[in-house]
Write a protein that binds this DNA or RNA. Sequence first.
RNA 1: GCGCUCGUAGUAUAGUGGUAAUAUGCUGGCUUCCCAAGUCAGCGUCCCGGGUUCAAUUCCCGGCGGGCGCACCA
Length: 497
Amino acid sequence: MKIENSIETFNSLVKRRGFIWGPSPEIYGGFAGFYSYGPAGMALKNNILELFRQECRYFGFGEVECPTIMPSIVWEASGHLERFIDPVMRCNKCNTLYRADKFLQENLPDLMIDGLSFEEMEKLINKHELTCPKCGNNFQKIEEYNLMLKTSVGNNVTAYLRPETATTTYLLFNRLDQDARRQYPIKIYQFGKAYRNEISPRQGVLRMRSFDQFELQMFISREQEMEFVDYEEVKLNKLPLLDWKMQEKGIDKTNLISLDKAIKDKILKKPAYAFCLYVAHYLIKVLSIPEELIRFRQHSLNERAHYADDAWDLEIKTRQFGWIEICGIHDRTDYDLRRHAEYSKQNFEISMGADPNIKEVPQVLEIAFGIDRIIYTLLETTFNVEEGRIILKLNPNLAPNTVAVFPLVRNKENIRKFALKIHRELLENRIGSFYDAAGSIGKRYRRQDELGTKWCITIDYESLDDNCITLRDRDSMEQIRINISNLSEIIKKKQRE
RNA sequence: GCGCUCGUAGUAUAGUGGUAAUAUGCUGGCUUCCCAAGUCAGCGUCCCGGGUUCAAUUCCCGGCGGGCGCACCA
């Protein structure tokens, strides 16, 4: 295989080194929109999650986990049943699929199409004798295309696989309210699978039908939204913002401004929401994604989801797919809790301040990450080819292996034994060590470069006498000799740097 | 979903109406070997189903999957 700095080299690396495989199940030809993680990919994912969980704790978020399947009523209340089902119609002859409502709106711009029933839309088609623009034939009956995956539970009870984790978190609201002893804002996150029945999934793991979300929620009062303690501490941080007014003018360069200024200039409405942007940015920065590849882009009005009052995407620039959404920050207002209160006949009006008589339904601010997209962008943005050497310049804390241990030669038993001993000691100190004795020493270095392993430890003849090993750095390829007595400590110290 | 195009070892590709190749990879041996060395031995492939044919990985049809364009993307 040719080694060049190309996207083809990158794509084959992802497979070769066991990061991502698919579409799964590969042995049966694959199922579009479903992928698997290999050992390296899963190690990377777990390291990301570990870091995220740590940081969430730092920001005061607690974790919950909910079922991935919920009965219809939940999605009726959340609005997904209404909004995730599109009216579609196909041509009798060429089978081309159209969104019925969009098609009608385009052809009959003076009429109000929104909110019409299927029958009413069909009547309009007949009345105006609309036919397939491609081949001129008539349409079949309007059918529904459901973006949610439907299933049945028990004795034929219709249920849906969740299209987001957020809604399932909101269902716990009254529990969380008690659990948090009404200390608002309540900060909660959930990690887990969500499912979307994409019509035609493309771009590999960027648009899967089964994917992982990591969604943070803040239940907060209207007053706190405007006067938020946490915000005060971070408001001088500058973020690369691209609001929709700029986009309308055709500007695609971001404006690096402080949250404070964004609030003053009314680019952002609420300090608590601004804080959410900060958290999203912080979590991405923790992964060592380069600053210049990150931007926040505000949604235009018609881009927003049904529940959102304001929405910004944290986007990362990729080589293969351009700017892609990694995280959506949504001001969901009290929409979800109000709807669930209504449908479940619960009272979600609670007191959040000092005065127990002032009650309101909390506002919800959401930071929603797509974990698989993070993994893809991390791999792609850290991928480097230098003089025929493939290197993943991953943050050392994220790399599947923290260190790799090699005997310089493998046909000398005492060297091999020494190397294995060091490998075991590292493991005992809970350092992710990987042992490899196969192939030349150079080849073993290259293998680890491809996995993003930051440090390689080599045991040679001298080691037997002086108890020193060679520590080789992934990026500089520099080697230093260090004594084995405090090796684990040195690695741990390097990890913290 | 529509159109175009593609599908050959783990990866990247060549090729063919008579079941296949190159590179790399992988396994084992030799080599005191610090950045993909050499050497010997070995491993592994024609997406699935149907049709045409004496014979199909190759041609035809269908399916599945990938890429691109359109549509879709709450």
